[in-house]
């Protein structure tokens, strides 16, 4: 690999800067058109330090996240690839970690993965060979020790920056902060949380995290997301396990009415209010925006809440990919 591009490792630099870091999620391609990914990337590029690409979220098939991440890297974005244990055994995980790194992707969010029972192909065989914490340990072993799980040497070792997720809103609540500690023990270098709607519960979680000293061991980014409609809020509350959407928020969305502009405005306002409350919580390193299929909301949320990337955005038209783009925009 030649000299690394300035955007390569931008996420880690941002976390080290001490300023609040902003990341957001862009869904992976849902068709064979790379331009669709580029279009979404450009909507968020100037507002964030890094962009996550989820891995078959909710058990619904999309393009491999590392493929979309490689396109993001060509757009000058430092991508964070999601890697789940649902669809890959430990061999596939190791080869994907290495393969993603060859394409200029070093940030990996290690996840267990939503079960396929919630998706559109529930008849699939679940893999779950290893779990998310073991995956963090595998990525750490590859990068730090330069060894595969078998002990065989990787030459040269990949430059990985593994992270993990936390969900403060699912039982057992007392165990959740300890589980974050366990992920850090395994080698997680950053934590991104589930979407925060219940700020009170999140405050309790963070208080315990601070008591345990975990916030000083790892940067924690709070997940936030705008609600687009009452229906979407009710779906998240009733159909997405591990999500907590308090009723007052749903009532506010209902009061905003059915007109698209009105309800979207209200959804963004709620999101900005949550960010303002989260800003007061000590121990948070930044925010992770999850505008589910609504990437254009990222700019508006950042503008209203004053969130800015911790690192300066790369020059327009620059690429963070070590591979020359095969498909020019």
């Amino acid at each position: 690999m030649s000299a690394p591009h300035p955007a390569y490792g931008r996420f880690e630099q941002a976390l080290r800067s001490g300023r609040p870091v902003v990341t957001c999620e862009v869904r992976s391609a849902d068709g064979a058109d790379p331009a669709a990914v580029r279009k979404r990337a450009r909507l968020v590029r100037d507002w964030v330090d890094a962009v996550n690409v989820p891995d078959n979220t909710g058990g619904v098939v999309h393009a491999s996240p590392w493929a979309s991440c490689a396109i993001l890297a060509q757009e000058g974005i430092d991508p964070i690839v999601h890697m789940t244990c649902r669809d890959r055994n430990r061999m596939a995980l190791q080869s994907d970690l290495l393969g993603a790194n060859l394409l200029g992707i070093r940030n990996v969010l290690c996840l267990t993965g939503d079960h396929m029972i919630h998706g559109d192909q529930p008849e699939t065989k679940p893999v779950y060979d290893v779990d998310s914490i073991q995956l963090v340990a595998i990525a750490t072993k590859l990068a730090r020790e330069g060894k595969y799980l078998s002990g065989r040497e990787v030459k040269p070792p990949p430059n990985l920056f593994p992270g993990a997720a936390a969900n403060p809103f699912a039982p057992p609540y007392e165990y959740r902060p300890l589980r974050v500690g366990k992920k850090v023990d395994a080698g997680a270098r950053f934590i991104q949380t589930q979407i925060v709607y219940n700020v009170d519960r999140f405050e309790e979680f963070m208080a315990r995290v601070r008591d345990l000293g975990i916030d000083r061991r790892v940067p924690i980014l709070a997940g936030v997301a705008p609600i687009r409609s009452v229906k979407a809020a009710q779906f998240m509350r009733d159909q997405v396990p591990g999500m907590e959407v308090p009723d007052p928020l749903i009532r506010r969305m209902a009061a905003a009415g059915d007109a698209k502009a009105r309800r979207e405005e209200e959804g963004i306002r709620i999101c900005v209010e949550i960010i303002e409350r989260l800003k007061k919580i000590p121990g948070l390193a930044g925010f992770h925006l999850m505008p589910i299929e609504w990437e254009s909301a990222v700019a508006e949320i950042c503008r209203q809440s004053g969130l800015r990337p911790a690192t300066s955005p790369p020059a327009a038209g620059s690429s963070a990919s070590p591979v020359s783009p095969l498909l020019n925009p």
């Binding site: 267990t112 939503d114 079960h115 779990d131 998310s132 914490i133 073991q134 997720a165 936390a166 969900n167 699912a170 039982p171 057992p172 165990y175 589980r179 366990k182 589930q194 396990p241 591990g242 907590e244």
Partner: peptide, 9 residues
């Protein structure tokens, strides 16, 4: 290694 994030309320 512990519960996933999908445990119901």
């Amino acid at each position: 290694d512990g519960p996933c994030g999908g445990v119901r309320m």
